Amino acid sequence: MTNADILREWALYCAAMGWPVFPLVSASKRPAIRGWEQRATVDRDRIARCWEAGTYNIGVATGPSRLLVVDLDTAKQPGEHDGVTALAEFAAGRGVALPETYTVATPSGGRHLYFALPDGVRLRNTAGLLAPRVDTRSGGGYVVAPGSVVAEGGYELLDDTDPAPLPGWLLQALCERPPTTTAPPRDMPVRQASAYAASAVQGECDEVRAAPAGRHNEVLSRDGLPA
């Protein structure tokens, strides 16, 4: 098989998983099209035509795929934890462990951990919110799919376990906000206020934070949120 054939098969594989895909510039992580999140597709005919036209890498649009992908990067400074270690310590500090899930190795030595979002929950991208060298990709984001190749190497599938449901403790952590001493203006315009109310999970997050000690999992378990 040619490189174009291999990339096409990986793109079709992702689509079969229910993950809308779009082309990335050959040997790159950059989108090859504008409006990629809206144009990402699982249509096999469209995918075949696209990848027959060139050796495009593959982007998975995480929002439309109903995924949250945890991006674990390598350490950048001597003595710094890499993302894998940092996330493991973060989980241990909460007395929990990460479940086995769909995992892709990145060319830099990092990892992409795929989790399925529960119905009704929408999350955005984060950078370092959980721990240093730990980012997340969801609504408005994308990840480079397995089978793609860049100058540093290829994105390799390490674990083809179906994406595990996003753990409740991880959802809670992503909803937590750092304390701030800056109060919002009292006379906030209606249009601005509605923008703050647009998050689909804000109410759930506030209830989790307000739950009495020992009842966080109970709060997370109701209304479709995982325990």
Rank of each mutant, 00 (worst) to 15 (best):
Y102K: 13
S199D: 14
G203A: 13
F90H: 15
A151E: 15
R111V: 00
A40V: 06
D82G: 14
Y196M: 09
A145N: 08
D82C: 13
T181Q: 10
L12C: 08
I33Q: 09
V25C: 03
A16N: 06
W19Y: 14
A75M: 05
F22N: 10
Y102I: 00
E100Y: 00
V21Q: 12
E156C: 03
R49C: 05
V121G: 01
Y196K: 09
D43L: 04
G35T: 04
P118F: 12
Y155D: 11
R39F: 01
R222D: 10
V25M: 05
P226R: 12
L12V: 02
W169R: 07
L113T: 09
G128Y: 09
P189A: 09
A116V: 03
V25D: 05
L158Q: 13
L7E: 04
L117G: 11
A227R: 14
M17W: 09
G154M: 07
L67I: 06
D160I: 01
G141F: 03
A27R: 15
L123V: 10
T180V: 10
R94F: 05
G54A: 15
C205N: 02
P118H: 08
I47K: 06
R222E: 15
G59Q: 07
F22W: 02
V21K: 09
P78I: 03
G59N: 05
A86C: 02
A195N: 07
G128E: 06
A213P: 00
D73H: 05
A4R: 15
C205I: 01
L174N: 06
